[in-house]
């Protein structure tokens, strides 16, 4: 592989993975609470456009990221009300949310195509970033990337070691039992859905403010669906979701460089390779069916109707 520097590749991989990682960790929490929200793509793109608009108008990327999270959470609130209070079908509602989000975002972003957003600064000073190899990989990123990794660690710790996480898992495992013990199933699920929406929106904003960085219609290009797939194949484990997201980002970054190096493989195959490799690897990790099923929230996608 001539001409491909592993250090810049790793740096690029981390950046490329972050939007998907954020969306996936949010969806993981949603699904652990027993709700299947297929609207990740829609929440991401609404986050992307809201973040972009606010960042352009205020000049602050940080307000932009916050607006992205709020936009994603706002869209997920529609999903929460429809599925938790009006007991609509989660699959259909989630699909509708994606379609709605795609349409809404192109309407909102119409006036914003072709503009460059304000620059998001790197977190650490130049001196740290100049350390060979470790410098760019460990210190060469902006705040959101560190936040995404902290979020994975936080979600892992919360699910595993806190009472809040235990209650969330319990609700996702059997809402009837949780209700019988007096837990507020609907309230807990709505909180989880909002958290998932905020994460997806933040991921979308990262896409439009840092990754691309500009606004184009439909710019998420399936990232939300990949995030959904990563959650399932990661067997609902936060660190595996990180592996899955980085793997996808890594292959995506690698294939771009291979294309640039004019390697003798048709571009179409390179283009599809991140999707293929990610799915194949995750299928292999989760091939122990019994174990994966054990970690799957048993009440996933089931409608909860409190009956006295």
């Amino acid at each position: 592989m001539m001409g491909i520097d592993p250090v810049t590749l790793i740096v690029a991989l981390i950046g490329a993975s972050t939007p998907i990682l954020l969306a996936a960790i949010g969806e993981l929490v949603v699904e652990k609470s027993g709700v299947l929200n297929l609207g990740v793509e829609g929440m991401m793109i609404v986050g992307a456009v809201s973040g972009f608009i606010i960042a352009i108008n205020t000049g602050s990327p940080w307000l932009g990221f916050a607006a992205g999270a709020v936009g994603g959470a706002g869209l997920s609130l529609i999903f929460a009300l429809l599925t938790q209070y009006l007991l609509s079908n989660q699959v259909a509602t989630g699909l509708a949310l994606t379609l709605f989000g795609l349409g809404l975002s192109s309407l909102m972003g119409e006036a914003y195509t072709g503009i460059n957003p304000p620059l998001t600064p790197d977190l650490f000073p130049q001196a740290l970033r100049d350390i060979p190899v470790a410098g760019p990989i460990l210190f060469g990123h902006d705040l959101v990337i560190y936040l995404s990794v902290l979020l994975v660690a936080g979600v892992w710790y919360a699910l595993r070691h806190t009472r809040m996480g235990l209650i969330l898992r319990a609700v996702g495992e059997s809402h009837d039992a949780a209700h019988a013990l007096g837990y507020k199933v609907i309230r807990i699920r709505i909180c989880a859905i909002l958290f998932g929406g905020a994460c997806a929106g933040l991921g979308g904003a990262y896409l439009s403010l840092v990754r691309v960085p500009s606004w184009t219609e439909g710019m998420t290009a399936g990232a939300g669906w990949i995030a959904l797939a990563i959650v399932v194949f990661a067997s609902w484990k936060p660190w595996r979701a990180l592996i899955g997201a980085y793997l996808f980002g890594g292959i995506a970054a690698l294939q771009l460089r291979l294309q640039a190096a004019e390697i003798n493989i048709p571009v179409m195959f390179l283009d599809m390779s991140p999707y293929l490799v990610t799915i194949i690897v995750l299928v292999i990790i989760s091939s122990d069916r019994g174990r994966a099923a054990l970690n799957a929230p048993a009440a996933l996608g089931k409608v909860f109707h409190a009956s006295g």
Partner: peptide, 10 residues
Amino acid sequence: FQHFSLFEAL
């Protein structure tokens, strides 16, 4: 309870 109050995966 008669049923409905345990979580199998926990």
